[in-house]
Design a protein around this nucleic acid. Structure first.
Lengths: 296, 296
DNA sequence: TCCTGAATATCAATTTTTTCGATGGTAAAT
DNA sequence: ATTTACCATCGAAAAAATTGATATTCAGGA
């Protein structure tokens, strides 16, 4: 039982004529005969009585008319929902590093939600490896990396931005305001860094290794909000993206250290898989991110 | 969008794999790919995201799963109803002459209805011409004729019976009890007959014509119950099938006249069109009539 | 690191299904 | 009595579905 036959059947039943149905549907008359016969054979019952070139629905036929209408109504309904739906509904799963998640929720989420209340957003956090895995397995719709600049033919980089980073310390630090510092000047101070092997920490370590240096932090912790609050209270140094330290720099609690011999390129990238189907919601989200400051 | 594709789609969605669906459905894997692609092309949207050999339903896909299930459920429901239904429901349209209708309702209907309460019966009345027209146009399911014996390759005669007929008069008639009457003896008496040109009246007139005779009745009326009651009260004669006069003969109000030179073959036939689809109800009805006295 | 196995896409060939056009028979209309 | 309208049927043609082989990619194991 195929929809084609049901549609033909409905027309025949309504017009009371194979010939008229053929005209209306653009088939030849023999096709109509065949399709109806096909239905009848499959269902094992007559749908129309043919007596003297006049067709009349049998009881079964009557029942089928009702079912056929309901079935077609459902397919129509689906098609309609399809086109409407363009705007409606939508779930997006975004995976970011901890720090970005925090920043996005505090900075952008409220506004985004106000603009697009029907889009529901799910945030998860993970390191770069986790995140790439997730888009590779379609467990995340988009990710935001905070790492070395990524290129990969399988990924679409929807937005990217070089991230300013600085060595930061409490404003009371002996290095505060000192000009032309070298990495070697500070490398033996107590450091607070993010977790080993991940994100910009990994790049940081690699850059040090290039110079045959190594720093063993006194505290390692992923949560950058904790790092900044530790820095404010203690005489320690960290290496962080500006967007993390922004508030405390502005309020004067922390300050940048003028280290001149270590320039690290950290990139923030908004990435999705090239095979990803971009739902209306996803497009909306991506456009929103593109239109707004990535980090502020 | 054909049901075949929807069924495939459901299986793929449930199994999360084209390959497994192919095995389960007995298709090759390329067929599944093709069918899903077909659906996607037609709907103009992705149903599954394919990322690294893993398929995931898109939002649209999810919606379609729900619709597809509902659609398939409807077809299943119809098929089930189809088979159940064998016994249930049913309307039969029976057309008979007035007299037969009366007789059937008073004699058989109650019993039939008790045995098959779910079959609803519609009775109409008409003369032989009307009735034949009606089965020719499928406006009646079965008819019962009271006329000359009919043969026709397009009709199925489910049951037939020669109908005894007699000239009848009031028991007080001067002809009551007289033996060896001839038609000529009574032809000038006042007659009450059924309507001209119809059923056995037509045959009666024809038989008279063969003998170059003619009778002009004083009263013509279709309703045989009225004829018999007129006969009982007046000194008149009629020519009627026995089943019509049975009660009044038995109660002694009417009597048969012993006219010996006019033997008319009137037949009662249960007829339907040879192309008629015999529903369960129709079969039941016909069997019932066959199993019972046609006229009693 | 290099296989192997598992998964989907794709393409040409084949099989199946659908459609058409012509024909025939019958009933209704003119 | 002739024409028209209608459905069934059949063989041929066209279209569609299916297959099998092949390609590609990824995951996992040796």
């Amino acid at each position: 039982m195929e929809l084609r036959n049901l549609i033909t059947f409905i027309h025949v039943a309504e017009l009371g004529s194979f010939t008229k149905a053929a005209e209306q549907l653009g088939y030849s008359q023999s096709t109509i005969s065949f399709q109806i016969k096909q239905l009848e054979d499959e269902l094992g019952c007559l749908l129309f009585e043919r007596i003297n070139h006049t067709i009349t629905l049998t009881e079964r036929g009557h029942e089928l008319v009702s079912y056929a209408h309901r079935i077609c109504a459902l397919t129509d309904e689906f098609r309609e929902n399809m086109s409407k739906d363009e705007e409606l509904s939508g779930r997006i799963h975004i995976v970011t590093p901890d720090s970005v998640c925090e920043e996005m929720i505090s900075t952008h989420y409220k506004d985004f939600h106000n603009k697009y209340p029907s889009i529901s957003v799910r945030f998860s956090t993970g390191d770069t490896g986790d995140m790439l895995d997730k888009i590779d397995h379609n467990e995340a719709d988009v990710i935001i990396t905070l790492d070395q600049r990524l290129f990969n033919k399988d990924y679409v980089i929807a937005k990217e931005e070089r991230l300013p980073m600085h060595f930061v310390a409490s404003s009371n630090s002996k290095f505060a305001g000192v000009k032309d510092l070298s990495i070697k000047d500070i490398m033996n101070e107590p450091f607070v860094l993010t977790e080993y092997g991940q994100g910009y920490r990994r790049i940081f370590d690699r850059e040090l290794a290039k110079r045959s240096l190594e720093i063993t932090p006194v505290l390692e912790i992923g949560r950058t909000d904790i790092i900044t609050s530790v820095l404010a209270e203690n005489d320690m140094i960290s290496f962080l993206p500006d967007f993390v330290t922004k508030d405390l720099i502005e309020s004067g609690k922390l300050c940048y250290l003028a280290v001149t011999d270590m320039n690290i390129d950290i990139w923030k990238q908004l990435i999705y898989h090239k095979n990803k189907w971009l739902s209306r919601s996803m497009k909306t989200f991506i456009e929103y991110i593109k239109a707004n400051e990535f980090s502020n």
